[in-house]
Amino acid sequence: MGTSIFTSCSFSWRNHHHIIPSHRFLSHSSPDKGLSVAKAAVDTRQNGCVEFVDEETEKFSGFLKRRSAIVSGVSLISSAVLGFPREGLAVVKQGLLAGRVPGLSEPDEQGWRTYRRPDEKSGGHGVGWSPIIPYIFSVPSGWEEVPVSIADLGGTEIDLRFANSKEGRLFVIVAPVLRFADNLGDDAKVEKIGPPEKVIAAFGPEVIGENVEGKVLSMGVVEHSGRTYYQFELEPPHVLITATAAGNRLYLFSVTASGLQWKRHYKDLKKIADSFRVV
């Protein structure tokens, strides 16, 4: 036994000289007679239409309605969880990466974008910690923010990570100066902490996870807008570190890469490291 369904057709059907407009006409086919007949009829008496529905078709129609409701529910869940439409994905990403707020500018003529830590971004507001002063840096096209793992180096405050799978990666450590000295006040300067040698010996292990003795290739001191920055290049591993202090925090900006990435993209990696500023 089969069931044929015709909906919203534009033909009419004559039966005993009465014209019945076809409105969602449902018929039941009977294999043994080779005919299509209606076993039961329901007079809707709307717009002069009669709708014929057999028992089996009525059950099938109910199944379709239930199935439609289920599919609609799944679609809503898919929109929110799987990202259709795009807004759903944005909500899930923000939920999974709590505290991460986009801060990238549009690319300039060379394709470089500037990241500024958003004022609204959470993190690092424990006892004895001043609010994190925003910082900025620039990255070429293809670098994107990535989640900060709770498995990062112990005893450090990884505030941000960026990476490009073909060029390298970077991260920002924001550590309390109280870990190094308790008499620097709430407006610490990196030069008050000590000379570059002292700073890299104390905080370098926070970056590379091991003692930096014998690994420092170069050190430098630069000043921007009245703030002093220490710059270091270490090898191995290949890493560029920019250090400064603001409030009662030490900021360590690290740019690192594999040997091949270092060889191919050193110029851009150095430009990224040099662009770091606390504003």
Rank of each mutant, 00 (worst) to 15 (best):
H224W: 09
F232P: 08
F162P: 00
L104K: 04
E144F: 05
P102H: 04
D187E: 07
A188F: 09
L153V: 13
P147Y: 10
R227Q: 10
G88S: 06
A38M: 04
V172W: 00
S79Q: 13
A41P: 00
S165F: 11
S10E: 12
S78I: 11
E213S: 11
E144V: 06
D159Y: 09
H23C: 10
G103W: 08
G220W: 03
L76D: 06
E58S: 13
V92I: 15
S141R: 06
R161L: 03
G194C: 08
V139N: 06
S138N: 03
I272N: 11
V91P: 02
G168N: 04
K33R: 04
I19D: 14
S30C: 08
S78R: 15
P131D: 14
E106T: 13
S218T: 07
G226Q: 09
W112D: 02
M1R: 12
L234V: 12
G194E: 06
V279A: 11
C9R: 02
V255R: 11
V255T: 10
Y229G: 01
Y115F: 15
L35K: 00
I77Q: 08
S78P: 00
H23W: 14
I200K: 12
H18L: 10
K198E: 15
A246G: 08
I193W: 13
T242K: 08
W129H: 07
F203G: 01
Q46D: 10
E56N: 12
V139Q: 02
Y135R: 01
K270H: 12
F6D: 00
G220E: 09
G103H: 05
D152Q: 13
S122I: 14
K263N: 11
F84W: 14
D274H: 12
A181N: 04
E58N: 12
V139G: 02
V216P: 01
S4D: 10
R67P: 00
P21C: 05
E210C: 03
R277S: 00
I241Y: 11
A151G: 13
W129Y: 12
S68F: 09
S29P: 08
R86N: 09
R249A: 10
T156R: 00
L76T: 09
V37S: 03
L26Y: 14
V37I: 11
V279H: 07
E191H: 13
D182N: 05
L234S: 02
E233K: 11
G34L: 00
L153K: 14
M1L: 09
A245F: 14
V81I: 05
K121Y: 01
Y266H: 15
S22M: 15
T3F: 11
F63E: 03
I133W: 03
A38E: 06
G209N: 02
P31C: 01
E109D: 15
G155N: 03
L26I: 06
L170N: 06
F180E: 02
L217P: 03
